[in-house]
Amino acid sequence: MSVLLVALWSPAICMAQKPVRLIKIEVVGSKRVTQEQVIATSQLQIGQPVDSSLVDAAAERLMQSGLFKTLSYRLRTDHDEAIVIFTIEEAAKNLPVVFENFVWFADDEIAHAIRQDVPFFDGTAPQGGTTTNKIAAALQRLLDGKRIPGRVEFLPYADERVGRVELLFTVKGVKIPVCSVHFPGADAIPETNLIKASQQLIQSDYSKKDAAAFARYTLFPLYRRLGRLRATFQDPTVKLEPE
């Protein structure tokens, strides 16, 4: 039985090996990321023929995801069978992902499309690596599939008032005017009064962040003046109106 220890970025240190059949993949050091997510991101599959160059490529894909601070692997072979052992140190905590104005798609539809390229997507993503580019590409495919003439852009967004950094994905190049606003469940303040107080949103381009901020900083003070300090607004939802 031979043991090969390879650092991700090191040059090749042995002659090319004859491919052997992969029978098992082990992951050491995972905390937030599951073993299944590591394996899916590596794109290795049990039963496939592997050699050190293929595992090098898998390890590079893992590092490029931005999920890991360090990564090494061992390729352990016995006759014509192989076991790959990834030893990982996870990177800093992922950032929440916000889809700013993807009003044509349900959240589940967006998540499903992203997981085709990013198996570990759980509503968060690392800021570094290639993951954000893959998310943007998946979102762009959704737009193109419905012939929506927009382009996807993303950037880190820091809300200093709440001390939170998010990855904000936005559709640019298409108008999404707000036609009307509604407040189901309003009681202490009549819905008609809330609608009247929200007229500046009408005909503005829809923005999930702007709508949430408007509720927090413009509408909530109306409740505060009534002593309703526990009043809350849920995240805004949208419904497309026919043209």
Rank of each mutant, 00 (worst) to 15 (best):
D122L: 08
I13W: 13
D144F: 02
D117F: 08
D80G: 07
E90P: 10
P49Y: 06
L167S: 00
V98D: 06
I83K: 12
M63Y: 14
E243Y: 12
F233Q: 01
A158F: 15
N193L: 12
D210P: 00
D80W: 03
L201H: 03
S10P: 00
F68N: 02
E60M: 11
A7G: 10
S198P: 01
P96Y: 09
R161E: 12
G66D: 05
R216S: 10
A111S: 12
V171W: 00
A136S: 14
P184T: 05
V27A: 05
F169G: 08
T237L: 09
P236Q: 09
F154L: 03
V181D: 02
V181K: 05
A82I: 02
R61P: 03
A138V: 04
D117W: 07
R61I: 02
L155H: 15
G145H: 03
G47A: 10
H79K: 14
I83L: 10
A57C: 04
S180R: 14
F121Q: 01
V20I: 08
L67F: 09
V28S: 14
R228V: 02
V171S: 00
I88V: 15
I114H: 04
I176Q: 15
K24S: 11
T124E: 11
Q199I: 08
T124G: 00
D51H: 06
T170K: 11
L67T: 06
S72H: 09
V55W: 07
L194Y: 05
V181F: 05
E243I: 11
V118C: 01
V174I: 15
F169V: 11
V3W: 14
L22D: 06
Q17H: 10
Q35C: 08
V55F: 04
I176E: 14
G129L: 03
L226R: 08
L71N: 04
D78Q: 15
F183M: 04
L155R: 15
Q199N: 10
Q43N: 07
L8F: 06
R21Y: 02
E81C: 07
F102S: 00
G123L: 08
R151D: 07
P184L: 01
Y223G: 02
S53Y: 09
D51G: 06
S204D: 14
I202E: 06
R76V: 15
V103C: 10
G145A: 09
S204L: 11
Y157I: 01
E89M: 01
A111R: 09
G150L: 12
D108Y: 11
